[in-house]
């Protein structure tokens, strides 16, 4: 890092000698002295960039939310339309994360334990929802699940409409949250020591008992993490949902869409209040994931 901009803090010119001579107690407390140069420059740049791009804008949102005031906040949050959107968003996210929890563990198990032609391809395809832009996913799911779509026409005779109803929201969320459970559980299944399963079998456990009582409990921390990640992604999802949901107020309108509506009406206080509520929920999820991982490291000796 040969930058003069970094002034006296750059330790480049000191070459191989440890910079202990000039390091004040203050700096040693913050940054452990090291032969590798460039801490001041890289850390300074990274922190500034992080602050400018992420922290300050998020801080402005929280600041504007305090301007809304407590009564304004409660009023917005308890507005029937907001409540309906919250119910749908959380209900659909909960359903999607739960269904994907079951299928995610199943898929991870298949991918790790079974050998079959096309396994590699399948493994790669799991990440499709990460790679496919949400607008494409939404457009396609709407076409597939509409009344004359490939899948929708199978349900139409039964009187079930999927696209443009709350069910459509669920379908879109199923798609976008699919990879999370698979990708968090998969590496843990790979790590499972088969001897444990052999021990269970020699002690007389049936295969089902081994899986339920020995294998699954060791997957719990990873499953909690995967569940929380899938859920967090689902409640924030916007792009794919608005194509399939129909977006009727009180019926099939999700919270992120409501934020966009309020913003387009220039109702900034309401948009800010709802966004802050969602942000706080997201942070709570993030905290939960970190706590689970810390607990898992202590309890099982690995983080998921």
């Amino acid at each position: 890092m040969s930058s003069a901009a970094n002034g006296g803090r750059a330790r480049r010119s000191r070459g191989p000698h440890p910079p202990s001579a000039g390091a004040s107690g203050q700096r040693a407390w913050f940054h452990k002295p090291s032969v590798v140069p460039g801490f001041g420059l890289t850390f300074g740049f990274a922190v500034t960039y992080l602050a400018l791009v992420v922290l300050v804008p998020l801080g402005v949102l929280l600041l504007r939310a305090t301007g809304v005031g407590w009564s304004g906040f409660v009023q917005t949050a308890l507005d029937p339309r907001t409540l309906a959107a919250l119910r749908l968003t959380f209900g659909a996210s909960f359903a999607a994360a739960t269904i994907n929890a079951v299928f995610g563990v199943l898929l991870a198990w298949i991918l790790v334990r079974y050998r079959f032609p096309g396994r590699r391809l399948l493994d790669a395809a799991i990440d499709l929802p990460f790679a496919l832009p949400t607008a494409v996913a939404g457009l396609t799911l709407a076409a597939l699940y509409s009344r004359n779509g490939w899948i929708g026409q199978l349900f139409a005779p039964l009187g079930i409409r999927i696209a443009y109803t709350p069910l459509g929201v669920g379908v879109a969320l199923l798609f976008v949250s699919l990879p999370f459970m698979v990708r968090t559980v998969q590496p843990v299944i790979e790590e499972i020591d088969r001897e444990v399963e052999e021990a269970a079998a020699t002690l007389g456990a049936t295969r089902l008992q081994t899986v339920v009582r020995v294998v699954l409990p060791s997957l719990v921390p990873a499953m909690l993490t995967g569940y929380a990640l899938a859920f967090a992604r689902a409640i924030g999802e916007y792009g794919s949902v608005i194509f399939v949901a129909g977006n009727q107020p009180y019926v099939s309108e999700i919270v992120p869409l409501l934020i966009v509506f309020r913003l387009e009406e220039f109702n900034y206080p309401a948009a800010t209040a709802i966004a802050t509520l969602m942000l706080l929920i997201s942070f709570a999820m993030l905290l939960f994931v970190n706590l689970v991982q810390a607990w898992s490291r202590r309890r099982f000796g690995y983080g998921s």
Binding site: P57, L58, I235, G236, Y238, G239, P256, L257, A275, M285
Partner: peptide
């Protein structure tokens, strides 16, 4: 962990 909509909103 921030919804994309909120990412846009903060800049607005």
């Amino acid at each position: 962990s921030v919804s994309p909509v909120i990412a846009g909103l903060v800049y607005v």
